[in-house]
């Protein structure tokens, strides 16, 4: 089995949701930035990147099994 990640795209980013988001192939370069490129999401529309519940930068390198949550700018309260 090739390594996979659990991908969650929220709010307006849901439009970029791929098939099999729960078991999405880990990108060869493994960075979040390369993941965004594969998904076709312009980097500037992603404001919040969570990996296993911790906010990280686009350069963060993913591991197999990581839970990745992506958000545009959002707020409420």
């Amino acid at each position: 089995m090739p390594p996979t990640i659990e991908l969650k795209l929220y709010a307006t980013l849901a439009a970029f949701q791929p098939a099999e988001a729960e078991r999405f192939p880990l990108p060869p370069e493994a960075s979040v930035a390369s993941l965004l490129a594969i998904l076709g999401i312009p980097a500037e529309v992603v404001k919040l990147i969570f990996v296993n519940g911790v906010r990280v930068d686009p350069a963060f390198r993913l591991q197999p099994g990581d839970r990745v949550g992506l958000f545009p700018p959002v707020g409420g309260g």
């Binding site: 969650k8 929220y10 709010a11 404001k47 958000f71 409420g76």
Partner: peptide, 21 residues
């Protein structure tokens, strides 16, 4: 983008997924 896009489209409850994540 928060006051101009996110809040009008989804309301304050857009936070459920963020805070849960």
């Amino acid at each position: 983008p928060v006051t101009g896009e996110g809040l009008p489209a989804f309301g304050t409850n857009v936070l459920t997924n963020v805070i849960n994540e």
